[in-house]
Design a protein around this nucleic acid. Structure first.
Lengths: 229, 229
DNA sequence: CGGATGTATCTACACCGTAGACTCTAGGCG
DNA sequence: CGCCTAGAGTCTACGGTGTAGATACATCCG
């Protein structure tokens, strides 16, 4: 009658469990809904107790980005680097669509922390992709440049796609039309005319096409100036 | 002796003045420092009075992004669309470096508002670049795709560059070294080895190179499948 | 048993966005 | 002139936030 009630939700916590609950909250109710008190409530714990597992709210946010990025699998020794980069791109895209509310964290957190001080989990993709490229024959310098082009393109695409993404596909067209109808016709003729095209955006195809272009450009460069013996 | 003290900072306000003060605050002290109370203090006004010029804090943020994007000049009728796109890219980069704290808003605000309901000022670049491309001979459909590739690349680059940007160039190397030194050597060999290269990132050159590649790809496509009569 | 050590909880503070009531000012109109 | 109205400016208050610090509690070691 005095055991600390392990009925269901009162198991012993650990950092991962806390982060998972936080992620769940963010996924379902948005970033703004994530507060220590709300999270404590979701875990049926005193909010102050969470500070044992996350030093601050900022640390919590970092933890979430880390957790999400861990869903991304990279195999830096795969010899087919092009296929690998293509797969990673699609995986990251799906990950972003699965956790749209986390995307702002993904692109924003790194801006506030110098590279070397970031959570290791968020640096791992960088490290591993560098490895992949170096393994593939790029000089380390070039690998870095390639990584930047690749990841830049990827993040850009995700932001683009998510901007035009609307949750309820039923409302999608209507809302879009409604919204665009609001635009002054003489100032925004092109946007208004493109409404139907905007409405059915095939993000996957667009991403794949972009990756193809990028990869062919990169392969060309690799062929032109090989560095290995 | 009773005039409402127009000494200096107590002129009549308007939305733009408020937004400019807000931008100044964000530039100098970061996004988190922007609160109604702080802003009211900066303007020597009652915080509640600001609601006359911005309906909410969110609206304030939207206003700031709009204000910043207005610094970007686009000439949609310039026949040399490639030069135009290149210039815009560099302008946007400089703008991001001038207002690094605003960049999170730039990439993040559009994610929370359906396209048609966004502040007009933030849609204008899209509209005008579409105009530029259509004028250049792209079919409207293609113009949209090209825009996405272009802007995606651009945003990606800016995020990349800002991630590695550190304010005080004196501390830069030291901090970076310090940070990277922290990384476990066996897990992050590539990153550690690339520290010196990371330290002197020439964002302008990298951007320009990327734009060149993109433009040549685009020009090729335009040449391959022209749409005009 | 006594102490010590780590966990959980509570209280309190300074700050936030903003709803709503209130005061004050300027101007129009009889 | 006096009065009324509309709007701008101000104040107070409410329910929320992150988190420092004190306090209570459990658990283990000697």
């Amino acid at each position: 009658m005095s055991a600390p009630q392990d009925t269901d939700s009162r198991k012993r916590l650990n950092r991962e469990a806390v982060l998972e609950a936080a992620l769940e909250l963010v996924d379902s109710e948005g970033l703004e809904a994530l507060s220590m008190r709300r999270l404590g409530q979701a875990l049926d714990r005193d909010p102050m107790g969470l500070y044992r597992y996350a030093a601050s709210r900022a640390d919590l946010l970092d933890g979430i980005t880390e957790l999400v990025l861990n869903e991304l699998a990279i195999f830096p020794t795969d010899p087919d680097w092009q296929a690998q980069l293509r797969r990673i791109a699609h995986d990251l895209r799906l990950l972003a669509l699965r956790h749209p509310n986390v995307v702002p964290l993904l692109v924003t957190r790194p801006l506030s922390t110098p590279l070397g001080l970031r959570p290791l989990g968020t640096l791992r993709p960088l490290e591993q992709i560098l490895g992949l490229l170096i393994e593939a024959g790029f000089a380390p310098n070039d690998a870095l440049h390639v990584y930047r082009a690749y990841y830049g393109f990827l993040y850009g695409h995700i932001l683009n796609e998510l901007q035009e993404y609307i949750v309820d596909p039923e409302e999608n067209v209507a809302l879009l039309r409604l919204g665009l109808h609001r635009l002054p016709a003489r100032e925004f003729p092109n946007l208004r005319e493109l409404a139907p095209v905007l409405a059915d955006y095939d993000g996957e195809a667009e991403l794949d096409e972009g990756i193809s272009i990028l990869l062919s450009g990169l392969a060309e460069r690799l062929g032109a100036a090989p560095t290995g013996p």
